[in-house]
Amino acid sequence: MKFSTWRRLALKGALACVAAAAVSASCLVSADEAVLRVSAIPDEAPTELQRKFAPLGKYLAAQTGMKVVFTPVSDYAAVVEALATKKIDLAWLGGFTFVQAKVRTKGTAIPIVQREEDARFTSKFITADPGIKSLADLKGKTFAFGAPSSTSGSLMPRFFLQQAGLDPEKDFKRIAYSGAHDATAAFVAAGKAEAGVLNASVWDKLVETGKVDTDKLHVFATTPPYFDYNWTVRGDLDPVLVRKLTDAFLKLDPAKPEDMEILKLQRAGRFIPTRKENYEGIEKAARSAGLLK
């Protein structure tokens, strides 16, 4: 019996080695077909992002003649790192993640377009506690940010809290990172946090679709406007392709029903060109809030 079990084990070992060999062999044969690799920071559920991207991906494939592959992730920083290590070509980034990407790529990442509303973006502070009426009332409360590297869910609110004389680390009882904007609303509605902050566009969507109870949750403060989301390409992408992509976004016309479909899913009126300098304010805010060193 003992020998037989040992033999079986040997068999398994041998097979495992064969399997490994087969796998590494198969890895060497990777076809070089023109693929545009795209990802997005997960400020909403990855499944939702995937659904939203599908028509846009088809449109981009048609415009560039390349195969478009979208990889959903659940970690902001992973998108930045993937762009920096050239694992993806095009990424939907937030203002702060763009600044991080700029730093990680030594300034080579290029923002190409943004939505019209991203030029004047805001964050909303929400609570279910009628006693909280201003930022100053937040002292000693539990507070939910979005993801740590979210612009509208963490960085800019921090910056404005700081300007209002509040230090989240010291003045709040406990801070939590919900990970995503809709999650922040859910956290606050569920009482997991006494107050929270999320981006205005997601808040509007939640209100429109009746996903939040506005009798219970109310907005008690709004940040001044700042530049947020954009589509960024890695710096060493073929300039011809970059041009094609930029034009493709700018060509989307709200008057055309099929383009309107795409824009609606992106919650964009239309796309406008953007440039690195737009995000200098955010970089300054990040340094001052201690999120960038």
């Binding site: 068999l11 097979l15 399997a19 490994a20 890895c27």
Partner: peptide, 22 residues
Amino acid sequence: FGLALLAGAVASFKYRDIDLAS
């Protein structure tokens, strides 16, 4: 059993291209 193991392992690596060589 051996074949099943082999198939499982290969399929696992193939699925969504777990490309360790890269």
